[in-house]
Design a protein around this nucleic acid. Sequence first.
DNA 1: GTCTATACGTTGATAGAC
DNA 2: GTCTATCAACGTATAGAC
Lengths: 233, 233
Amino acid sequence: MRACGFTRVCRARWQSRRGRWRGAAVRAFASGDHGIEGAMARTQGSRSEITGPLIREAALRLFARHGYAAVSMRQIAAAVGVQVGTLYAYTPDKQTLLADLLKTHMEAVLAEWHDRPDTDALTRLDHFVATHIAMSLDHLEEVFLAYMELRNLSPENHAMIAGLRRRYEDALEIILIDGQREGRMRLDDPRLAMLALIGMLTGVTNWYRAGGRLDRERLIAIYQGLARGAVGA
Amino acid sequence: MRACGFTRVCRARWQSRRGRWRGAAVRAFASGDHGIEGAMARTQGSRSEITGPLIREAALRLFARHGYAAVSMRQIAAAVGVQVGTLYAYTPDKQTLLADLLKTHMEAVLAEWHDRPDTDALTRLDHFVATHIAMSLDHLEEVFLAYMELRNLSPENHAMIAGLRRRYEDALEIILIDGQREGRMRLDDPRLAMLALIGMLTGVTNWYRAGGRLDRERLIAIYQGLARGAVGA
DNA sequence: GTCTATACGTTGATAGAC
DNA sequence: GTCTATCAACGTATAGAC
């Protein structure tokens, strides 16, 4: 066991320190490349507006690349160009940093998704696939992280993130059920088909690298074809 | 960075200790449940024949459950009911323990796979799917681990395991290419279809739990249907 | 807001007795 | 083959100066 793994002891100890955090989760989540890896430690100065996002970006990149458990707070601080202690002005602990990353991402995913209940199920499936792939390419690291690091969440955080993911998966399952009812899809088991499709789609983050041989539109079109085929359209 | 991450320094230091390990990888890989979690530390006694397998089983289970980086050698030792030092009579270091687990598994996967080049591509696809799912259900933790922990391998070990996995993926891709040539499959991009199918199949390890509502044969049949559909059969 | 310094548990790994 | 004891390095997190 590590010093302060997933227990809530640390949380309580920490909350008694100052009132800063009391229930306020970090919300903003800027993206983009700020050349984190090459950053060096500076020796003073306040830059509160940008340090927060930089920390989340560095944590995201490092967690995605090496895994949550393999990354130390020191590494994150070094990537940002800041001392370790500074991180704790932006997050109560490492666990919360991960949870905030995943929560923000999953909420963005759900906010991005707009079903089109007035169209046929196959069109809706195409739309789901396109949205998912586009999101995966634009936020490779987030999608990958949300897929890989569920098991490193504390029980409370796990329940929260799993709930969000569940809502996302349900959105797809509804489409499949409707498709079956409309007679546009032939499915033995809509739930299993949903899980299979999610696995197929999420797998993209395992091999996709920017600048590969396939452009975005083509990739989406191919996956739409695969998905349609899988559901028997 | 951790004390002895992926560097080869430790390896060299260790090799100078005794001749025991020089190139000899742990080979055997017993499976099954021996009630590891409840084991308690004993205080003496030699049981060389069973300790090795027990260590690998405990490591496999713990790595799969919590992730390689999150599991300590002490946890593994405790699960086996042995002291930490004892582990190092069976493996030079933690990294090698992981690599041996993955290598043994991937070699078993490749040994298990027998293509049937004299039959049609759709039958061969069915056979691949059935073999893969059966392997996944029989060795949930190995398949899951081989899928998740590639990034925690040292560069050398990563290259080795990735090579084995490549051979496995190629086996599927060949089937798809043949299917296209035979006119039995309609594919925009065989390589992409292969990656999508692998993602779909491997995803099973993320949600499958023994004793669920679907029996083995039904699960295989459903996935065969999904795979056939995806390739346009 | 950031730094420096530090507390203190845990880590991977080794040495040497039995 | 296993244990006990030990090491140095590193882990997360905190305190207090500026």
